[in-house]
Amino acid sequence: MQAAVTATVTGSALGVGSELRNFQLRLGMWVFLGTVTMLFAAFSSAFMVRSAGTDWHAMPLPRILWWNTGLIMLSSVVLDYGRRCANQSRWGSAAAAVGGAGLLGLLFLLGQLDAWRQLAQAGISVPTGPFAASFYMMTGLHALHLMAALALLGWGAWRLWRGALDDEVAVRGVASLCATFWHFLGGLWLYLFAMMLLL
């Protein structure tokens, strides 16, 4: 038993200082994303249960959502470019890319808002029916998470901008943290959009 016991990872084997910190942040982020996954899993199961109800009327979704989808996918690509720049210590481009991805994300949010506006103009509001209610609720909660991610991106861009002055390992960690959160929310949007199109 002894040998097997000592072979498993111990705290000290994870490295120290910024490497340990990066590991902790990454771990914390993934666990957090696990809870977000469960949150949206619960919303989706409610969506599916309700879609079997007699009062369920799926409605055509505003066309702008397709553009928004394109925007958020593009922003993920830009962000990932930024992360790779950070790994090559090209701090200026890294900061610009992360900031740019954030701007694209902001456009996405404005686009979502416009989708809400279009629906409202067509007379579709939250109490119209379970589909409309779910649409507003899920896009709204997705947007809230995205705003939190935007704040993270803003901070990340600033850290990258000062990259060389800072602890480089730590800054790379921040870049990859931004990327993880952002890609996840992009993927989540694809999932939500597909579900709302199909059900």
Binding site: F43, R50, V126, P130, L141
Partner: peptide
């Protein structure tokens, strides 16, 4: 707890919608 509690968060949001925004989840 981390994996199970979000279900109630979702439920609470929907219940608040039912109570205050006129939905019927």
């Amino acid at each position: 707890g981390l994996l199970a509690f979000p279900a109630l968060t979702a439920g609470a949001v929907m219940l608040l919608f039912d109570r205050h925004l006129g939905t019927s989840f």
